[in-house]
Amino acid sequence: MSFLEVFQYTRQDSIVHRLDPRAKLFLSLVLAVISLLFLEIFPLLIIIGVLIPMMTAAKSLRRWLRSMKGLSILLLFILIFNTLLSTYPNPLNYSIALILRLIALMTSFSIFFLTVHPDELSQALIQMRVRFEFAFAMSMAMRYVPTLGQEAYAIMDTQKARGVELDKGNILKRIRNIVPIIVPLIIVSIRRALSIAESMESRGFGASKNRTYMESLSFQKRDWAVCIISLIVLIMVIYIRLNIPLPDWSIPF
């Protein structure tokens, strides 16, 4: 699963990290839309050629390469099966384009997820008029994922100590083995939820209709620049797509 690394926030100090999350969200969406507009190798290569310097600017090129390496098996899979089974005139050409599109899409979104801290994300959502409760629920889910993981391991150890053989038997048996883990996990989580609610309540959660925020995001000149450039590029690309025929360079297989 190492290819998912590219969607995980990493603490860095780079130009991309410092951009406003809303600007980055717009940039990512524009890049993704552009990647979806093309299914020809040449334009997709240009898109990836633009994305790689952006990754470098986010100081995350190495992480990106590692993720792509993790993804390579899947890519190979797509390549082989599409080439063999596709009904298109040039199946190899088509499969390569598909792979490039997948890479371009993943990279576009990773520019957002790799560089936006969950806190910034929820603050951005709030400032985009999402209700605080929803944004907070999201950031809290992220907060408690490692805690829950730890708890699951503790329960697994306990059950093993009591003689439950978790990693033996056929698939059906293994699926049934989840029950003694999931049931206590749910019970413990409900209890934990109550105690969290108690603590939040004691600190005035939901007390004031006009909740304030210690830090708020503000759009700077560079954020506007990113948005405007993205928009111009998007319009240009759509225009090219619709009105200018692309040279049909393709691999004749």
């Binding site: 801290h117 969950p118 806190d119 950031s139 809290m140 992220m142 907060r143 969290i196 603590s199 939040m200 600190r203 005035g204 959660f205 939901g206 007390a207 004031s208 909740r211 304030t212 925020y213 210690m214």
Partner: peptide, 15 residues
């Protein structure tokens, strides 16, 4: 309940 210490301390007064 939050993701860093500053936010945690600010949580109550923000509410």
């Amino acid at each position: 309940v939050t993701l860093n210490v500053e936010k945690e301390i600010a949580f109550g007064p923000e509410n």
